[in-house]
Amino acid sequence: MAHIPIEAVPYLESAIYLPMLLIVLEKDYELIEKGPFKLKRPYVHLIEEAKKLAEKDLQNTKSYLKKNSLKVVQGKRDDLFTEYLFYYKQVSEVRRYSNIRLRNRVEELLNDYLSSSGSSRKSSSL
């Protein structure tokens, strides 16, 4: 019987987290655009760059999943847990994730992507 390859799990989880991250970035972008910021462009640029990086990673994730016959489907959800079904060839595996864990992981990714997009810009000396 085939099992979901252990090296595929990070890609399957990325297929869960990256869409959530993109939703957060889009909502934050809208809030900054509508908000009372004096200088919006630096924040908008930072979010746009983070979105580009996350979209590229999500594209790579989807490509990996397709190439390796993998699929993720959200299952049942309640106040505490969200269930995801991982499919590989003829095998399915159910994994439950704490909603707090999902939120915390997306927050970690948000920090990572914003840091990466901010560090990619060269700082100008005064």
Rank of each mutant, 00 (worst) to 15 (best):
A2E: 15
H3M: 09
I4P: 05
I4F: 07
I4C: 09
I6T: 15
E7P: 04
A8K: 07
A8W: 06
V9Y: 15
P10Y: 07
P10Q: 04
E13P: 02
S14Q: 06
A15H: 06
I16W: 00
I16G: 01
I16S: 05
Y17I: 11
P19N: 03
P19F: 08
I23S: 10
V24R: 06
E26C: 04
D28S: 12
E30A: 14
E30M: 10
L31N: 15
L31W: 00
I32Y: 07
K34Y: 01
K34S: 12
G35K: 04
P36V: 05
L39C: 02
R41M: 12
V44Y: 00
L46R: 05
A50T: 02
K52S: 09
L53E: 05
A54M: 10
E55K: 14
E55W: 02
L58T: 05
Q59M: 10
Q59V: 08
K62T: 02
S63K: 05
Y64L: 03
L65N: 01
K67S: 12
K67D: 10
S69V: 09
L70V: 11
L70A: 09
L70E: 06
K71D: 04
V72Y: 02
V72A: 03
V72W: 01
V73F: 04
K76T: 13
D79R: 09
T82G: 03
E83S: 12
Y88D: 05
K89Q: 11
Q90W: 02
Q90G: 07
V91S: 12
V91Y: 09
E93I: 08
V94I: 13
V94N: 03
R95W: 03
R95E: 10
R96A: 10
Y97N: 03
Y97D: 03
N99F: 04
R101T: 12
L102F: 04
N104T: 13
R105N: 09
N111D: 06
D112E: 14
S119L: 13
S120N: 13
S123H: 10
S124M: 08
S124G: 12
L126E: 10
